[in-house]
Design a protein around this nucleic acid. Structure first.
Lengths: 341, 341
DNA sequence: TGTTCAGATGTAAGCGCTTACAGTTTCGGA
DNA sequence: TCCGAAACTGTAAGCGCTTACATCTGAACA
């Protein structure tokens, strides 16, 4: 077999001895073509290994059935899980998902937004509400439907689906405070460009105030995502001499790092110090003691996000904001504050 | 501001009072355009919020600077990590990554291959060598560079980068056998469409034979990916009365499920039973006891895969197959076989 | 001052596909 | 047997962009 260049509609048409219009119809609305012709065309398609050129098709037809998603990183299990559900749901609706990641960087995100849109994404899934004005303007100018996930904010410009990070963390913090904790440590992801992390920090401050605990008793360390960084941050917190009775962590991964580090330092969890996480990913039940955390319905969120976004793309009505419940999971890493200082 | 439809090259050209060719040159090879003109064009581009139409560009220029990757699932941390490294590396080389997942299903994979190629992917990253003839023919016919990762097989048609799953598992198994284990359990991922899982199973059989242990002493359960399924499989293995002294697991996630289940059943790991994993993801060091497993350099593999695939796409030479080292990590979940039966 | 030529810009031909519109065939009914 | 509608199929005009080629400008040089 000689090497042939990529077959086109024309080649198929020639091979099946019909016009290009007929081939196109065979592919897009087969019922308009007689069975005999259809068979002939299909044979030709298979024989040639023809696949339509997407770019050409989009240009001619102006729809892509493609949804783009931009997540901070694929390495974070919570996004991976939600996204898998998102994709599965999209598939059943006839859409293809294209994923890109921003590494939590605003300029990269902007680049990816452009990349996905220029590749014809009909709609976009984004994470959190923090975003440069450039991107927002661009989205508005291009009139591309965009949905924000993992966040809930009725007041924001973009519609969103998620839970209230502030309220969820408040709920957890209240449970913790009710156990008599007074000296608080907090290991957070970078709050600069992450509204979710920021909301969680605010929540802890808020509940401390509610409980009449001085803000001086709160010590915060910001760090990157990872078990190792969680461990390092915990070490730093202790070394600084703050002697917290509980350490809130911005997510489960940091919390697991903290627990491991505590154990390495001979600090018992939870009798010497309590540690909490956020997300409730699988690792939360693997670590010993099991991690007290906030459960977030990632899969459900992904699936719902898919159907809302498709509604947006297809011009149907959709809720501006959808709130899901995040629930506090009390587990072994949390106990009452010990009397000992 | 009135609602305008998406701006095109033409609009920009008009606004800047130049021809479309000049605008195009400004975007693609700015050095060919005088500075004054260039500034004027750039202003127009910004004012209009213009982004080139990717489809049109591809059709006219025939290159996309896009790489596609198809992974079984985003939920598996090993793929997520490798892929993140893959994308980071691609970005530095000016390529955009598009990801799709196949859910371990051959027909879905085929669909995704077509989707990515029709969207103009210049090259494809695939996982493992198992693939339907349809896909292989299609790839050959379209002449799309494709690289297989997470596998190493010099004899395969497609070039690959990865480690030798068989050898790696052999190395682990030899260490295990040398500790006197004779009754072997094995919890594997589905081997049907997963050459990596298959190689690992074969390795265990092979080493048993080396050690002169009857194949009758091997009991295998195949199951899906997940901590829960690992736990269930372990339970089933024990309930079947095989009383293994060691249980090999096809990956860390299954192994963690097994460990957790063992503990729930009052079986001590490792004094009653040893358990091993494969991959060395973070969870392996989180579980107690720490999981004995095989370390795979996922990040490195992702980064290397990116540079090889770009070489392929750009027509440079590249190694047909690249082998990375996977190393056995002896940790707490493995101990010598107890004398007791 | 007249040439020459390099650099800047414009012109226009597609790239592969969809689809409005036009043309052809088939078939039932008068 | 003839006519019109219905069912198919073909023709051709773009979609937005790149790029080979043509054109134009002005500076350098003789």
């Amino acid at each position: 077999m000689t090497i042939r260049s990529v077959p086109t509609l024309d080649d198929v048409a020639k091979q099946a001895a019909v016009s290009t219009a007929t081939v196109s119809r065979c592919l897009n609305s087969p019922e308009q073509v007689s069975e005999a012709t259809r068979n002939r065309v299909n044979e030709a398609v298979n024989a040639l290994g023809y696949t339509p050129n997407f770019g050409a098709r989009v240009m001619a037809a102006k729809r892509t059935n493609t949804i783009g998603a931009i997540i901070p990183t694929m390495e974070n299990a919570i996004f991976a899980r939600g996204l898998q559900a998102f994709q599965d749901e999209l598939r059943t609706k006839g859409y293809t998902l294209l994923v890109a990641s921003s590494s939590y960087k605003s300029d990269v995100e902007e680049e990816q937004v452009r990349a996905l849109i220029s590749r014809g994404a009909d709609g976009l899934l984004l994470i959190g509400h923090d975003r440069s004005a450039t991107i927002m303007n661009y989205l508005a100018a291009r009139n591309v439907p965009a949905l924000v996930a993992w966040a809930h904010n009725p007041g924001a410009v973009l519609p969103s689906i998620g839970f209230d990070n502030f309220e969820a963390m408040c709920a957890l913090a209240r449970q913790v405070m009710s156990l008599g904790h007074q000296r608080i440590g907090l290991i957070s992801a970078a709050t600069e460009t992450n509204d979710r992390a920021r909301a969680r920090v605010l929540a802890v401050r808020h509940v401390m105030q509610e409980a009449g605990i001085s803000p001086d008793n709160l010590h915060i360390i910001e760090t990157e995502y990872g078990i190792e960084t969680g461990a390092t941050a915990f070490q730093a917190l202790i070394d600084a001499g703050h002697d917290p009775s509980v350490v809130f962590c911005g997510n489960d991964v940091l919390a697991v790092g903290a627990i491991k580090q505590a154990q390495k330092m001979g600090i018992n969890v939870p009798s010497d110090i309590s540690i909490t996480g956020f997300d409730d990913i699988e690792i939360a039940r693997v670590v010993v003691p099991e991690l007290c955390t906030v459960h977030v319905p990632h899969r459900k969120m992904g699936a719902r996000a898919a159907s809302i976004l498709v509604d947006m793309v297809e011009g149907r009505s959709f809720p501006h904001t959808t709130q899901l419940d995040a629930t506090v999971e009390i587990r072994g890493s949390l106990s009452a504050a010990s009397a000992a200082r």
